[in-house]
Design a protein around this nucleic acid. Structure first.
Lengths: 214, 214
DNA sequence: CGCAGTATACCTACTAGTAGGTAGATAGTC
DNA sequence: GACTATCTACCTACTAGTAGGTATACTGCG
């Protein structure tokens, strides 16, 4: 069934099989691959690992995703799409700019609470950057850029509402710092196996940057 | 290549005393392993890679370091030792607490300027935490802790000298935030292949936390 | 001094196991 | 009959690690 990875997401939603709503196999493979990449990194996970988890043969995965490069790119595209959706949710459920960032931080704090390996896929893969297929490197860079821009837009809004503490720094640098704290905090939470490492640094940052009210 | 390795071997053997020769080769192996880990990560580098770079056989590396676990732990121990030395240098060459942090940031900015993969070894390996040998995990955690404590002690000193901007946050949280920014900034510099990503976020942070003068 | 014993540092050649990837057969479905 | 999704069986290349051998150098003894 191999199709262009750009089209997979539209096709690979879910299908009804034998009267039971079952996840599309390609989707299942991507989900397991995502999980394994978070746990072991790009060069640490294998087709054999995925096959074992799902209970199929290695070759069956190659049918859906001819190469590892292909699979990883597809997983990253899915990830970025869901990340964009999340950003929209953070915006929709927040009363003010501060709430948007709080939603963002809380999202990851929740993930880390369940499992200390549940960090951002792009943050995870960024450290392996130099051995990643080029398309994957591009996706990661684009994700970082998208996140920084979103944070920057939130800061801009906060500034217009007078919520931002005065600073002579560019909003770009401020936004990049926030993203760096988020990623660094994830790394620390992972090293310590303790999500408190994440919440501590993100909450500290928020107090430094903006007020609770306009 | 055969002649070259024979020649260097001859020079080493004839100019260096017994016992030190082993240390030289072992040191060389550790150095190359460090480099390769930064480039490819723990599961991405192999004994064969090291052997090729140095120009010896795989088995010779096993002679010096029986197992990969063994080698990695040894590299991490060396790294932590040199990191401690660096901290002392940052202290000795700084006029005030701010200067100490500036030295710390400048050190990594310089490394990143030469090569975008030249980040902190522990930050690099932290993302692979769950597949690392246990001793390595301990070293990484201990390094993070040591760094956070050092930053915290610098902040303490700055506070006593009235250089710190007032904050109701704990110095522990402040120090952890700084470390997170450093690690997150390294990740960004790696993803963008641009050291400016690092300098931007560390400089922004410094402006937020402390004054230039007491 | 010369010689034996031992440690060092490397080699070639191998093991068992895993990596990503392929070919071709098979069974169910449209 | 074509298409889809899977299988078995295989490939080559590479993984960490081992066995056994070699040359050289240091060390203690007569």
């Amino acid at each position: 069934m191999y199709v262009d990875s750009k089209l997979t997401s539209f096709i690979a939603e879910s299908t009804v099989r034998h009267g039971v709503l079952k996840m599309n196999r390609a989707q299942e493979i991507k989900q397991v691959a995502h999980q394994l990449m978070l746990e072991k990194g790009y060069s640490g996970f294998s087709y054999a690992d995925i096959a074992t988890v799902i209970g199929i043969q290695k070759a069956s995965i190659h049918y859906h995703f001819p190469s590892k490069d292909n699979l990883v790119q597809s997983v990253l595209q899915d990830y970025r799409r869901s990340a964009s959706d999340s950003l929209r949710k953070f915006e929709d459920t927040a009363a003010n700019p501060r709430g948007k960032l709080e939603n963002y931080f809380a999202y990851w704090a929740d993930r880390l609470a369940n499992e200390p390996t549940h960090i951002c896929l792009c943050a995870m893969l960024a450290s392996e950057n130099s051995i990643l297929p080029e398309e994957a490197q591009c996706e990661i860079q684009a994700h970082f850029e998208e996140m920084r821009k979103w944070i920057q837009s939130v800061l801009q809004e906060a500034q217009e509402q007078g919520m931002l503490f005065p600073s002579h720094l560019s909003l770009e640098a401020e936004a990049a710092s926030i993203l760096a704290v988020v990623h660094g905090g994830m790394l620390a939470a992972r090293a310590y196996r303790d999500k408190q490492q994440f919440t501590m640094v993100t909450e500290a940052l928020l107090h430094k940057i903006m007020r609770h009210q306009a």
